[in-house]
Amino acid sequence: MEEIFDPVCIDKEAIDSMDVVYDKTPLLTDAPMHYCPGCGHGIAHKMLMEVIAEMGIQEQTIGVAPVGCSVFAYHYMDVDMQEAAHGRACAVATGIKRVRPDKFVFTYQGDGDLAAIGTAETIHAVNRGENILVLFINNAIYGMTGGQMAPTSLQNQVTSTSPYGRDTKFTGAPLKMTELVAHLPGAYYVTRQAVNNVNSVRRLKKAIRTALEYQKDNNGTCFIEVISNCPSGYRMTPLQSMRWIEENMFSVFPLGDIKVPGKGGAVS
């Protein structure tokens, strides 16, 4: 045990002479988050809400949260939201955007939701170039239901439904939805970001800002994959889980822009 060092006592006057340089965004509610300690969802929620706050578009934003750990997102995101059936967020968002074309619409989906049961809805929404932001949180596992294998689970990754390690010959390889949708002409801006450290989180925020700015121009779907962690599902500590995604996921799911308007990208 390191020797007990009493914490720096708060010196009231010192604080008065300081500015607040970072604080919780008002667009996150006071509801304590149910996410496990160190889960990337909280970070992704925060970046999204910070951007919506900075763009001043709270009054024009409608979000869609599907089934998964983030099913309760509407307890935390202070914008009008709809909860979609598992896999159907992109269809629900299509319905919203088509009748409210002047609003900013986003979906916030996990890998099971977007890359398994919702594959068709995702691909067709992007293929139609629905003018929405798809925020795709990929932690290669089904968190909410207790750590089962996902379509993006890695070769030999141990999960509660691949207890001997995922055998990709038997269950398929990690599904690269982002590269898949990047090929669709309807995809306007496609990038893969992460929440493994502060630099990645800053880049994620920039990508979300870019995507929501693009949404004003009505040029097609903006698709942001966020490589995230799942401490409970991986049976690891939060820090170990962040190292795990760096050492294992990034090689399979390389970070960076995949399709940027004007710069071509995966396919011109």
């Binding site: 009493d6 008065d16 970072y22 909280g42 450290n197 502060v198």
Partner: peptide, 29 residues
Amino acid sequence: YKDNCTGCTNCGIICPDSVITVYRENKKK
């Protein structure tokens, strides 16, 4: 637990539960 914080906001940004408020000295004040 040390007095060498520079108010760089890293901790605030990475915190999944947004529990940290970061202050930084303002020379004028």
